[in-house]
C-alpha cells in the first residue's frame, strides 16, 4: 500500500512542485495519474520509490517511511520505468541491460537467465537479445526499459508515459500486459496524457493540478466530466465527446467505450421504434 500524507516538495531551484498532495493506493490497484504539463505528476511518483524525499509530509510504502530506507531497497519492491528510456539504458546489449538489475539484487545465474528470456519474450524483444539498445527505435528502447524492470518482478510498477512513441499495436499489447499484471495483483501506476488509452483500460484516475490532487475516481466518472477535465488541460475521449453532444436526447454522458456507445445508441433507436 502507498500512503501519501500532505506532501510538499520543492526542487533545489526553488520550484514548488508538490503543494500538499494526499492519496492512498491499495495493493492491486490500477491507477492513472493525469494532468497538465508541469502539474507535478512525475515528481509525485518519484516519491514512491524514494528517488525524491518529501520536503514536508510523509510517504509510506507498506507502512515504511521512504526517508528511512535506501532507494536500492525500495527499488526491489517498486519498479520505475522512466518517460525517456535513455535515462535508464546504458548496457552494450539488450540482454545485459535486462540482466543488470537482477545481478544487483543478487539473483542466481540460472534465475537471471530464465527471467531475461521471459522478459524478452513478453515484450516482443527476443530478436534483439544481442543488439545494442541504442540501435533500436524510441518505442523499442521503451520496451527494453520496461523489460529490465519487470525482470525482477517488483510488486508495484510505475510507468511514466508508457504510450509515447508506441503505435496502435504496441499500445494494445501494453494494455493486455497491464491487464495481465492486474490479475497477478500487482499495483500498477501509469502517468499519462493519453486519454484514449486510459478510456480503454478504465483504471482509477487521479487528476493533478499545480502540485495537488484535484479529482480521484473511476475513469468513467472523471473522464466524462468536462468541467474538471478542462482545469487539468485534458480533453474528454472521442466517444465521450460524441455523447456529451447528444445528452439532450436523454442519452447518458458517462460513456467512454465504443461498444458501450453502440449499445446505448441501438437501445435508444429500438425504444423509439416502439
Amino acid at each position: 500500500m502507498i500512503e501519501v500524507e500532505n506532501v510538499y516538495f520543492t526542487y533545489p531551484n526553488g520550484v514548488e512542485a508538490l503543494k500538499g498532495a494526499s492519496l492512498k493506493i491499495k495493493n492491486g490497484d490500477f491507477v492513472a495519474i493525469m494532468g497538465e504539463n508541469g502539474a507535478g505528476k512525475t515528481t509525485l511518483v518519484k516519491h514512491f520509490n524514494g528517488l525524491l524525499k518529501a520536503t514536508r509530509g510523509t510517504v509510506l510504502i507498506d507502512g515504511v517511511d521512504t526517508t528511512k530506507v535506501s532507494v536500492a531497497k525500495l527499488a526491489r519492491k517498486v519498479g520505475f520505468v522512466f518517460q525517456n528510456p535513455d535515462s535508464q539504458l546504458f548496457s552494450e546489449t539488450v540482454e545485459q541491460e535486462i540482466a543488470f538489475g537482477l545481478k544487483n539484487f543478487g539473483f542466481k545465474e540460472k534465475t537471471i537467465k530464465s527471467r531475461v528470456t521471459w522478459a524478452l519474450k513478453l515484450l516482443d524483444l527476443a530478436q534483439y537479445r544481442k543488439t545494442s539498445p541504442f540501435m533500436l527505435s524510441g518505442g523499442e528502447r521503451k520496451r527494453v526499459a520496461l523489460a529490465s524492470v519487470l525482470a525482477w518482478n517488483p510488486k508495484i510498477l510505475i510507468l511514466d508515459e508508457p504510450t509515447i512513441g508506441q503505435d496502435h499495436r504496441q499500445k494494445e499489447k501494453l494494455l493486455q500486459f497491464i491487464l495481465q499484471m492486474k490479475t497477478q495483483r500487482k499495483t500498477i501506476i501509469i502517468v499519462t496524457h493519453d486519454v484514449e488509452f486510459v478510456a480503454e483500460c478504465n483504471p482509477r484516475v487521479l487528476l493533478m493540478r499545480q502540485g495537488k490532487i484535484t479529482a480521484d475516481g473511476e475513469a468513467r466518472k472523471v473522464l466524462t466530466n468536462p468541467e474538471i477535465l478542462i482545469q487539468a488541460s485534458i480533453v474528454p475521449p472521442q466517444i465521450t465527446q460524441i455523447f456529451l453532444r447528444l445528452s439532450d436526447f436523454g442519452l447518458p454522458k458517462e460513456v467512454i467505450d465504443i461498444y458501450e456507445a453502440r449499445e446505448e445508441l441501438l437501445n435508444f433507436l429500438e425504444r423509439k421504434v416502439k
Binding site: 494532468g35 504539463n37 512513441g165 496524457h193 485534458i234
Partner: peptide
C-alpha cells in the same frame, strides 16, 4: 510527431 510530450489540450 510534434505533440507527443504535450498534455491533450496543449496538443490540440
Amino acid at each position: 510527431e510534434p505533440t507527443s510530450f504535450l498534455d491533450p489540450l496543449g496538443a490540440k
